[in-house]
Nucleic acid binder design. Structure first.
Length: 495
RNA sequence: GGGCCGUUAGCUCAGUGGUAGAGCAUCUGACUUUUAAUCAGGUGGUCGCUGGUUCGAUCCCAGCACGGCUCACCA
């Protein structure tokens, strides 16, 4: 209907395909049939056929059956070559008019790039040696109405790639490979931890009290209970309740939500691994972290050296361990005296552009100086230790040094990757820290968590690893948006 | 939120103060072993949106939208 309306260009291309769709229906063809069973993927079919010697293949051509998306059509008059792909692999189909018959050929001519097709035929090799299937029958499995991205350059516009990820995955094999790598990484983590007796658990994503980190939460509301809830900023306090409950090794690998700025390293929802290990401490966690990340790199990348922009990250163990203070001293011209008394510290902070100096504690200033001087320089895997107690409310203090805690952060590629500590399990000390924090920032004390600690929590080591950033490192991507299938973007008004 | 940059055909990209071009895709024709098939011809544009300057703006200026990088916020 309404054919005389002014047609926009895409609409013309769509109209072409809709006309073919109508023609197919007139021929009695269902353009969206219910099923087309295939015994195997194109990749596995290919592999099987590749193993057959050429003369054997031509002597006794195997009957094959496969399905996939039409990626290319090279027409040659009464013959055509079609690339059929299932995303992972592709196999060429040789279509002949005399082999399909008039009806089959007419039907084939109504197919377009991007349509899904089922093919039955015989395998053979062309004279250039290309493994192919001579089609006896081509069945339309799904008609596409929109034109596919260009075959050679793919889809490069970064905004379009993120908004229409399905097109990115279709058109850019590299992108697909990176998300497959992400999947292998996540599954590798599960197997690694399960093999060591860790139990995967699921704790609430909606919290009555946000806790476990200091970021601003997203707020939502439950109507029938008439209560505000916060999307979790960290699962930490729930996982430790499970340690209290007697699960001695637990992990959770899922989303956290933080209502903060967006950058190449921050997405409002991101994936975090947190695990807790009873009777362990942060020293053991460092060993486990080295072991796990090396294991994952070998599994996902196949190597312990990771290309990272202009640099190369070498995961060979052992990794450098450096205190927060030594890191600042190493990556700046500051002296130990500059980091000593308050006035010197403030001066140093000012010199490196730290803001709100007056209202920040000594420990916070040191951490700020670390960020300003060392963080972006830490390319090789480095455990930073010696964190001030004042910025670590959930960590146990170092023996003989009440101002420092048993905590480390792992840095690689100039990014924070992990954060871990020997968990504070003294309920009285934990209450003091919470109350101190509540006074300073106006937060709410999680009484239920404190009550759990009062029942007794064993000495425990706990760690969080930012999975998106780890994927960035393993796939050499500079932006977190490249490793999240559907990163948050503002909606576009048109469309 | 600040700074810098970008937005041209479905896709990938050129380009100019005088109403826009290429390749791929699409359409028509030729072609029975091609593979970024080839050859010939055609269709396709609100040059992100809105204003301003100008005889004339896709181009210059301003605002807005969306995106990229970066700083800030933030672990």
């Amino acid at each position: 209907m309404a054919e005389q309306e002014t047609q926009q260009p895409v609409e013309q291309l769509i109209a072409n395909r809709r006309e073919k769709l109508a023609s197919l229906r007139e021929l009695g063809v269902d353009p969206y049939p219910r099923r087309f069973r295939v015994p195997e993927s194109i990749g596995s079919l290919r592999e099987r056929l590749d193993a057959i010697a050429p003369d054997e293949l031509s002597a006794d051509p195997p009957k094959v059956r496969m399905a996939g998306r039409i990626q290319a059509i090279r027409g040659h008059g009464k013959v055509a070559f079609v690339d059929l792909t299932d995303g992972a692999a592709k196999l060429q189909v040789y279509v002949r008019r005399d082999r399909l018959g008039e009806d089959g050929w007419k039907l084939f001519k109504l197919m377009d790039l991007g349509d899904f097709a089922g093919v039955e035929g015989e395998a053979f090799r062309t004279r250039t040696g290309e493994l192919s299937v001579a089609a006896d029958r081509v069945t339309l499995l799904s008609k596409g109405l929109r034109p596919m991205p260009e075959k050679y350059h793919g889809l490069t516009d970064r905004e379009a790639r993120a908004r229409q990820r399905y097109l990115d995955l279709l058109a850019n094999p590299d992108s697909r490979a990176e998300f497959e790598a992400r999947s292998r990484l996540v599954s590798g983590i599960r197997r690694f931890l399960e093999a060591r007796g860790f139990l995967e658990v699921e704790t609430p994503m909606m919290h009555p009290i946000p806790g476990g980190a200091s970021a601003r939460p997203f707020v939502t509301h439950h109507n029938t209970m008439d209560m505000d809830l916060y999307l979790r900023i960290a699962p930490e306090l729930y996982l430790k309740r499970l340690i209290v409950g007697g699960f001695e090794r637990v992990f959770e690998l899922n989303r956290n939500f933080r209502n903060e700025g967006i950058s190449t390293r921050h997405n409002p929802e991101f994936t975090m691994l947190e695990f807790y290990w009873a009777y362990a401490d942060y020293e053991l966690l460092m060993d486990l972290t080295e072991e796990m990340i090396c294991h994952l790199a070998e599994q996902v990348v196949g190597s312990l050296t990771l290309p990272w922009g202009e640099a190369t990250i070498d995961l060979k163990r052992p990794w450098t361990r450096l205190s927060l203070q030594d890191a600042v001293l190493t990556y700046s011209d500051l002296t130990p005296e500059d980091l000593g008394e308050r006035s010197r510290l403030e001066k140093a902070a000012e010199r490196f552009g730290v803001e709100k100096i007056a209202e920040r504690t000594d420990g916070k200033l040191l951490a700020e100086l670390f960020e300003a001087t060392a963080e972006s320089e830490l390319m090789q895997p480095t455990f930073i230790t010696g964190f001030p107690r004042a910025i670590s409310p959930l960590a146990k203090s170092t023996a003989g040094d009440p101002d420092t805690v048993e905590r480390f952060e792992l840095y690689m590629g100039g990014m924070e990757i992990a954060n871990a500590y020997t968990e504070l399990n003294d309920p009285i000390e934990q209450r003091r820290r919470f109350e101190e924090q509540a006074r300073a920032t106006g937060g709410v004390v999680d009484e239920d968590f404190l009550r759990a600690l009062e029942y007794g929590m064993p000495p425990t080591g706990g760690e969080g690893i930012g999975i998106d950033r780890l994927v960035m490192l393993m796939t050499n991507r500079a932006s977190i948006r490249d490793v999240i299938l559907f990163p948050l973007l503002r909606p576009r008004l048109s469309e």
